[in-house]
Design a protein around this nucleic acid. Sequence first.
RNA 1: GCAGGGAUAGUGAAGCGGUCAAACACGGGUGACUGUAAAUCAUCUGGCUCAGCCUUCGGGGGUUCGAAUCCCUCUCCCUGCA
Length: 307
Amino acid sequence: MSHSQGYSVGKRMQDSTEEPPLIVIVGETASGKSALAIELAQQFDGEIIAADSRTFYKGMDIGTAKPTWAERSSVRHHLIDITTPDRPIAVSDFKPLANQAIQDIADRGKVPFLVGGTGLYVDAVIYNFSFLGEGDTTLRRKLQGISVDELQAELKKKNIPLPNNPKNPRHLIRCLETGGDYGTRHGLRENTLVMGLKIDREHFERRVASRTDAMMKAGLALEVEAMVEYYTPDCQALQAIGYQEFLPYFSGMATSEDVRAMIIRNTIRYAKRQRTWFKRNKSIQWICKEEEAVDLITTFLNKVSIV
RNA sequence: GCAGGGAUAGUGAAGCGGUCAAACACGGGUGACUGUAAAUCAUCUGGCUCAGCCUUCGGGGGUUCGAAUCCCUCUCCCUGCA
């Protein structure tokens, strides 16, 4: 942020090492960050890049609270509907896609807004994660049947230290895949403003309930049924809140009232996990109202254009 | 009215004389987490001046060195006979 070398505008445009400015908005699900982002993007001539692990997928519209077509025509959105549930997008796929979008938006003279609730994916971009290799899927499938104790024993045998979550089978398997290596993270991306949208608990829970009702009224059951029939119900993308909860309903083991209650509960639990994730990110500037965001962005953009 | 059965922590449900602040499940809190992340996992969950102490197992009263566990009685609930 401190290279006041007096680049000419032309030089800056050519210089690929210079990071385009980026505005990031994070927040728990149903916090209203998408609506806020649209407002802000309109106001500051921006475009939105979705950092949501479930809005990549075509067909998962209602349950993921994907922005509507009207919203998407008012502000251009990137990385929504870019794949299908049977072709998942992992963090390591997301990061380059997001960076491409950022560059593309900046090249067209607009302001990129990275907006989403998937903390890991956001971090991958703003902390410039480096990744290790992809795991062997057949080996992974084989390891999935093994107990935690056996996985730990396997690691011990190969002299690989246990991961930070030593009882998490997925982390143990990944550890086995990478030989105990981890990717690296860097400092916060330059020219980046990170904002987090806060929402008070009570207001939030009411929102979740009414949002769930609205989704169900909009035909969520049909959407899920179609997806489950076309893809396998256990495919990773469909392992999403608003989707999995319907499985017992389809097999006659639950009422739609049960489904509703489950979705609400799982959404609230998910939001808690998001809060925990974001809490330790000290780069986030927490805001409650749009005006605060406007202020932060205004000063941010001024500073960036001066450098 | 008679004969049985039951009342256990936020909920469901074990326990049936000491090792019980009480299994387990759910619910809830807190947290971890770089290639499945809307996923996955850990941990706590009666109270406190917390390696110890205090108050709990429908209410009251007994028996016992000792009771959630045995006896008496009261309240409420279910089942069978009236």
